[in-house]
Simulated assay, not measured.
Amino acid sequence: MPDVTISHLSKKFAATTVLHGIDLTIRDGEFFTLLGPSGCGKSTTLSCVAGLERPTTGSIAVGDRTMVDTASRTFVPPEGRNLGMVFQSYALWPHMTVAQNLALPLRIRKVDRRRQTALIGEALEKVGLADMRDRYPHQLSGGQQQRVALARALVYSPTVLLLDEPLSNLDAQLREQARAWLKRLQEDLGITTVYVTHDQEEALALSDRIAVMSEGHLVQVGSPTEIYQEPATAGVAAFVGRCNFLTGKVAAASDGRTEVVLDCNGRRVRTRAAKAGVEAGQRVTVAVRPERIKVLTADRQPPPDANVLTGTVLSSSYVGARFEYDVRLGDHAVQVATGRPGLTGEITLAVDPEVCLLYPTTDVVTPDIEALTTVSG
């Protein structure tokens, strides 16, 4: 399967620019996800790859074949690109059986009837629906309809598979099952796959690499581990998973550590050095994931280099695998995720400087302490 190369891709609708010079290379056989909130440009990018939208500028190539190049006025229509597409709505024809839905793209490609029967059988076998070829879409569950849509995209052996939020119509439990099944199928087929979603957990679970998009820009491209543990901006940290943000002022920066005086309680905390470098007196934001904050017991000493903070529990929630607490730190609140039940009153927290990310101060919203206090009574 080939690489997909996107170069200087931009797209305007009237006076509004929705894509700003996107540059990406999606590797052969990779499961690559475009992740971001609604309106960030991820589906528009996918539509440009599919040929459903014409970019304003830029080029897209699949392997050594150019699909679109605005400079040379090259544009291959969707039916000439041999790309498989699965839409969010599945787009199954309701008056056609499963087999007839799969036969349609084969008829368009003028595949003879005998070959059609074999290809349809193979595609349905891949998605586990070989015994449902004569059913109509209304006779199938949502998960089965999703598999039919995927089989239809695979039946003509596309070079690249394009998936636009194909699991969003499924309920939570079925979605998790479909996610695991889809990942296994992609690995078995080895097909280059471009996946669009706004669901961070889904992106982390499925992807070899993720591109995080915001307002038509590429913000960060990396593996799921890199995106989660080393977010390039506070915005990425806020969007991918949960994160606490505390503003402050740099007190000192040296030896791979930065000391920050927090606004919320006046305490000094040590963080890893900022990638861009900071100076004393500069305003910054300290970010730390809830699960990286450790709750100390009376008989447990903090690690030698840890930041030790004292807070007051405002509220607690049990979410099955862990307990989640809102904890007051001065005039702000942080979220803490731990396996320890029943925490109340004043508690002591320890945070390793290496898990404290540092960014220039942004407009990231911190929890409203007054609102939390009111809710918790």
Rank of each mutant, 00 (worst) to 15 (best):
Leu204Thr: 01
Leu162Gln: 03
Cys264His: 06
Leu154Arg: 03
Thr117Glu: 10
Gln186Thr: 05
Gly51Asn: 05
Ile191Lys: 01
Arg27Ile: 05
Ala205Thr: 10
Ala371Asp: 01
Asp331Met: 05
Ala99Lys: 15
Ala337Cys: 08
Lys42Asn: 10
Glu230Phe: 06
Arg27Trp: 09
Gly39Asp: 09
Asp64Leu: 08
Tyr136Cys: 04
Cys243His: 08
Leu174Val: 10
Val365Tyr: 02
Ala14His: 14
Thr16Glu: 12
Leu309Val: 14
Gly51Leu: 06
Val269Glu: 01
Thr297Trp: 08
Gly80Thr: 13
Thr338Cys: 12
Leu161Gln: 05
Gln220Asp: 00
Thr57Val: 13
Leu129Pro: 05
Gly80Ile: 12
Tyr318Asp: 06
Ala298Phe: 13
Asp326Thr: 15
Cys48Glu: 00
Thr17Met: 10
Gln229Val: 04
Ala180Leu: 08
His8Ser: 11
Ala350Lys: 15
Val62Lys: 03
Glu122Tyr: 03
Gly80Cys: 06
Asp368Ser: 14
Thr193Met: 01
Leu35Ile: 07
Pro55Gly: 03
Val49Met: 08
Asp3Thr: 07
Gly311Trp: 07
His20Tyr: 07
Arg152Thr: 03
Arg135Gln: 07
Ala103His: 06
Gly39Val: 12
Ala234Glu: 00
Gly235Asn: 02
Ile293Leu: 13
Asp23Met: 03
Asp255Gln: 09
Ser223Asp: 00
Ala252Thr: 08
Leu52Phe: 15
Leu329Phe: 09
Glu122Ala: 15
Asp134Thr: 15
Phe75Leu: 13
Glu354Lys: 13
Val319His: 07
Val18Leu: 00
Pro137Asp: 01
Leu129Gln: 09
Pro78Asp: 00
Gly311Asn: 09
Gly41Cys: 05
Ala234Ile: 02
Ala118His: 14
Asp131Ile: 03
Ala274Cys: 15
Pro37Gly: 04
Gly266Met: 06
Ile108Asn: 08
Leu129Met: 11
Arg242Thr: 14
Ile108Ala: 12
Leu129Ala: 06
Met132Arg: 12
Ala130Arg: 13
Val111Arg: 08
